[in-house]
Amino acid sequence: MPGYTIAILAIYFGFALLELWQSNLFSKDEQTRDDGIVESISMIMLLAVTQPAIVFGSAALMGWAAPGLEGALAGINVFAAIALFLVLDDMTQYWWHRASHSFSWLYNLHRAHHNAQYMSVRLVYRNNVIYYAMMPSLWLSGALLYLGLGWVYAFYLVVKMAVIIGAHSDVAWDKPLYRIKWLSPLMWLVERTISTPATHHAHHGRHADDPAVHYKGNYGNLLFFWDVLFGTAKITRTFPQSYGVENLAPATLGQQLLWPIFPENKVMRGEQDEGSMAAQSA
């Protein structure tokens, strides 16, 4: 097993153990039977099938389109290589994530990630199987591996996954640091650079009238800087009162994992919309 994989697993299970100790990892508030199924299947599919297939698929496409460029970037400066991953992987993922909250068909592919009514490391790999297969940043990262940047990707991926795992955990590492006054200038910089639990939990908040919620923003994965740069950032240093999806009909297990093969229930959606409109006019 590669060293970077061991490092990522150690980080993941480290946060999982913290949740097991402090917040009951396997029995979250408002958890349903479908939650564990969605999380298990989507995680296994991504790590065992989708991600390896994209790496091999992008290499095959690059070999067909540019056979003379294999390993062409292997000797470039390490900072230039990291910059390529930050732009072609992380910034591209920011725009893909933002688009997923802007277009209804893409949101149906992404909704499983938000359907959980809790925060946890369990959500890190929770998404529609097709959503990951279509993710441009994974294909571009595969192209960079073909170009010879695998040596940088290993380091980059460990750092990125450490940030993402920490941002999803309900054991918020940033919360106690906000209470230390002399750390305030440092935290001001940190929360505008990388995704923190406070900024990412805001994106998962359920109710729009909750001041800590910013569902249509805070899209960053590794770098929260993209939200700052492109005007979608909201920083409150507070946490939502509840999590999940507001004013939408419940998503079925099939819809969460394999929409559009299993489409949303239009009848339930219509009833939910009518109920929401009635509640708003009451």
Rank of each mutant, 00 (worst) to 15 (best):
L123M: 14
L123P: 00
L123E: 09
V124I: 12
Y125N: 15
Y125G: 02
Y125D: 14
R126P: 01
N127G: 08
N128Q: 04
V129W: 03
V129R: 00
V129M: 02
I130A: 04
I130R: 01
Y131T: 08
Y132N: 15
Y132H: 14
Y132K: 06
A133H: 02
A133S: 11
A133E: 13
A133Q: 06
A133R: 01
M134L: 15
P136V: 05
S137K: 09
L138H: 08
L138P: 08
L138I: 06
L138C: 11
L138M: 10
W139A: 13
L140E: 06
L140K: 05
S141I: 11
S141Q: 15
S141E: 15
S141L: 08
S141F: 05
G142I: 08
G142K: 07
A143V: 10
L144N: 02
L144M: 10
Y146C: 12
L147P: 01
L147W: 04
G148C: 13
L149W: 02
G150S: 13
G150N: 06
W151G: 05
W151M: 09
W151H: 12
W151L: 00
V152C: 07
V152H: 09
V152K: 13
V152L: 04
Y153N: 14
Y153L: 13
A154Y: 09
A154Q: 13
F155T: 08
Y156S: 02
L157D: 14
V158I: 15
V158T: 13
V159C: 14
K160D: 13
M161H: 10
A162W: 08
A162Q: 04
A162R: 10
A162H: 15
V163P: 01
V163Q: 03
V163E: 04
V163G: 04
I164M: 14
I164D: 05
I164K: 02
I165Q: 11
I165Y: 04
G166M: 03
G166L: 05
A167H: 03
A167P: 09
A167F: 07
H168S: 00
H168Y: 01
H168C: 02
H168M: 00
S169R: 02
D170A: 08
D170V: 02
D170E: 15
D170C: 04
V171M: 13
V171Q: 04
V171S: 03
A172M: 06
A172Y: 02
A172T: 10
W173V: 06
W173M: 00
D174R: 01
D174Q: 12
D174F: 08
K175T: 10
K175M: 07
K175W: 11
P176D: 05
L177N: 00
Y178D: 08
R179P: 01
R179N: 03
R179V: 09
R179W: 07
R179K: 14
K181D: 10
K181R: 13
K181V: 12
K181N: 11
W182K: 08
W182V: 06
W182A: 14
L183S: 06
L183I: 00
L183F: 11
L183R: 00
L183M: 04
S184E: 13
S184D: 15
